[in-house]
Simulated assay, not measured.
Amino acid sequence: MYKAGDDLVAETAKNGIDAIDRRILRALQEDGRMTIQALSERVGLSPSPCLRRVRALEKAGVISGYGASIDQKAVGLPVSVFISIKLERQRAGNLDAFGAAISRWPEVMECYLMTGQFDFLLRVVCSDLEAYERFLRERLTQLDGVASIESSFSLGPVKFSRVLPL
C-alpha cells in the first residue's frame, strides 16, 4: 500500500538531507524528547510536515534511535579507560571474532577498528581499578589472538558531545 510519506523517504535516501532536515536533526540532538509541536515551531514548519520529515528520517536510517544521556559518575561508573588492542593477525576472521567477543561485554561502551599501530580502540567504563583489573584478567586477556593491550586512564573529559555538527 502506498503511503504519502514514502516519496519523502525515497527522496531522503536518494538525495540526502536538506536544510530543513538539518534543522530538525540539530534540534532533536539537543532535545530528543521535544514534542512535534515544539519541534515544528523551532524549525519553521507546521506540525504535520514536520512529523512526516521526522518519520522519513527515521525510516531512512538517518535517525537511528532515541535515548537518555546518563552521567556515568552518578551511576557509580566513574572510571573511563581507553584500551588499544593489537591482534596477532589482522585477517578478517580474527577481526570479526574479536569484535563479536567484545560486543557482548557491557563495560565496553565504544569500539573502533583502527589504522596505525593498534587494531582496535575501546572505551571501557567501570566502578574502580579493581573492577578494571577483573575485566582485564577475566575477559580481555582471555581472548585468543590478542598480541598486546595498552590501557590509558582518563583523568576527566575536556569535551564530550553527542551532537553532530550539522
Rank of each mutant, 00 (worst) to 15 (best):
S40M: 03
L143C: 03
P47T: 15
R26K: 15
Q72D: 13
V146G: 05
F135P: 12
A68T: 14
C50G: 06
G32S: 10
G145P: 04
L121E: 15
V124T: 10
D119C: 10
V108P: 00
Q72R: 09
G76Q: 11
F120I: 12
Y2D: 15
M1C: 03
G93R: 05
A97V: 01
V146W: 03
K73P: 05
R91H: 05
I83W: 00
I17R: 09
M1D: 01
A97E: 02
S40H: 04
D21V: 03
S161A: 02
L95G: 03
P165K: 15
Y132N: 08
L95A: 10
G99Y: 02
A100R: 12
N15L: 14
R162V: 13
F120P: 12
W105N: 08
Q37Y: 10
S48Q: 12
M109T: 07
E41C: 12
C50M: 00
G5R: 15
S64A: 15
A74N: 11
L8F: 01
V158G: 05
C126H: 04
V108L: 09
R33M: 11
S103Q: 09
V54F: 01
L8Q: 00
E30N: 07
K14F: 03
S46L: 09
D6L: 06
F82V: 14
D7E: 04
G145A: 06
E150Y: 04
L140R: 05
R134I: 10
V9N: 00
G156R: 07
R104W: 03
Q72N: 09
A10I: 00
G76S: 01
E58V: 01
R134S: 05
R137L: 13
E58T: 11
C50E: 08
Q72H: 08
R89H: 10
L143Y: 05
L140D: 04
T35L: 12
S80T: 12
C111Q: 08
V124Y: 02
G67P: 08
K73A: 13
G145H: 01
G61H: 07
R134P: 12
R104N: 14
M114W: 07
A100M: 13
L155P: 07
D71G: 06
P165S: 15
L25T: 05
Y66H: 08
A147E: 07
G67E: 02
A19K: 10
L136H: 09
L143R: 00
A92L: 14
V9F: 06
P106T: 07
V54E: 08
A68K: 09
R91F: 01
R139L: 11
K73R: 15
K59N: 09
E41Q: 06
I17C: 13
V81Y: 11
V62K: 04
N94A: 14
I63P: 00
I24H: 07
A10V: 06
P106M: 04
G61Y: 02
R52F: 11
S46T: 09
R162Q: 03
A92F: 12
L143M: 06
Y66A: 00
E130A: 08
Y2R: 13
Y2W: 13
S154N: 14
G156E: 12
V75A: 06
S64D: 09
I102L: 14
F153D: 13
L155E: 06
